[in-house]
């Protein structure tokens, strides 16, 4: 008797599971694998659906895990698009032969060349600048200049950094390797480490809080975290500084990264997937990117959030973002050697 009951219960629970077995989605539904968090993609997708009628389902996870999943699923993957919050991960996906090239005039027009793959395998959809922030009451902006300068002795015990394990820092260092070469980058990273006021933080927001509280005076964060922070704490003393504005050649400009996406080879809905990508690069979506999360749109001419536009304009570094991925391995090893945790 009890066996029958058990089998009954088990089958009840397995039934929905089996019907989901291949994660089959209807024809007019897109499936996105996203490393970008739900509360940042949901409003965008909902807008897209309301305009086009195409449903968008998504699963969020860390980029590395999504890559592993896609490799395991291969051509039977239900996913149409892979979205990440870092260029390095996009490069890796392309390198793993996961993307299919999307030759689209719309995308080519909307997205600047250094923010997309040269073979059209992936496309940046928003720009986040990783820049210097400082305590305006303790630091005179004229003392700031470049990223490298943060290693100079005047910043001893005044610098706060995020952990080297975070992909944002890895991409930044990957770009530094391209700009300065390995030896020089390792040198100034070491000097950064010796200037640390506290052990590395696990989040950018914690750095902003630390600077506001006085634990340190300068730091490096993604600008949108500051945007969120200022929204909640309008009286904050923390301000943005755009470094490398006077540098030369490929060192010129603030280090930027992208959140972006690409169409997967396994997609059964490539046309619709392309439609989504194109829509995401359109003015409407780009405005949302800017308003939702204080990021910079890739499309030019899109209004920024008030807080962001207050920070003024800056030159961004125009090295191609794929370098973030190419040099990632080297960057991590370099940071280890420099003692940057």
């Amino acid at each position: 008797m009890i066996y029958k009951l058990l089998i009954f219960i088990l089958s009840l629970t397995l039934l929905p599971a089996c019907t989901q077995k291949n994660n089959e989605v209807k024809d007019d539904t897109l499936f996105v694998y996203s490393a970008r968090k739900e509360h940042l993609i949901k409003p965008l997708f909902e807008k897209f659906t309301s305009q086009t009628g195409i449903q968008v389902k998504y699963v969020t996870d860390k980029a590395g895990a999504l890559l592993q999943k896609l490799k395991a699923e291969d051509e039977n993957s239900p996913a149409d698009i892979l979205m990440t919050v870092d260029a390095g991960n996009l490069w890796k996906a392309a390198d793993s032969q996961l993307f299919e090239a999307a030759n689209s005039r719309v995308l080519s027009k909307n997205i600047p060349p250094h923010l997309k793959d040269s073979n059209n395998l992936w496309f940046g959809l928003s720009v986040r600048s990783r820049t210097i922030i400082y305590n305006s009451e303790k630091v005179d902006a004229s003392n700031l200049s470049t990223y490298k300068d943060l290693g100079s002795p005047k910043w001893k015990k005044r610098l706060c950094l995020r952990t080297a394990k975070k992909v944002y820092n890895q991409s930044m260092v990957a770009m530094f390797i391209e700009q300065y070469g390995i030896a020089e980058t390792e040198e100034f990273l070491k000097s950064w480490v010796s200037n640390l006021a506290a052990p590395v933080f696990s989040s950018d927001t914690a750095i902003i809080e630390a600077i506001d509280a006085g634990q340190c005076d300068v730091g490096i964060v993604n600008s949108y975290y500051l945007g969120r922070y200022i929204k909640k704490n309008s009286a904050s003393k923390v301000k943005v500084f755009w470094p490398n504005q006077k540098s030369s050649a490929n060192k010129l400009g603030v280090h930027v990264n992208i959140s972006g996406a690409g169409i997967l080879k396994s997609s059964k809905n490539k046309k619709k997937a392309l439609a989504l990508l194109e829509w995401l690069s359109s003015k409407e979506a780009q405005t949302q990117y800017a308003q939702l999360n204080y990021e910079y749109p890739v499309l030019s001419g899109v209004p920024l959030d008030a807080i962001v536009s207050n920070w003024g304009e800056f030159k961004q570094n125009t090295l191609n973002m794929s370098l973030a991925g190419k040099n990632q391995g080297q960057a991590i090893k370099l940071m280890d050697r420099a003692g940057y945790k």
Binding site: T13, L14, P16, A17, Q20, N22, N23, A72, E73
Partner: peptide
């Protein structure tokens, strides 16, 4: 045979 990487099972 392909099994779903994500399913209740």
């Amino acid at each position: 045979l392909t099994l779903a990487t994500s399913s209740l099972v």
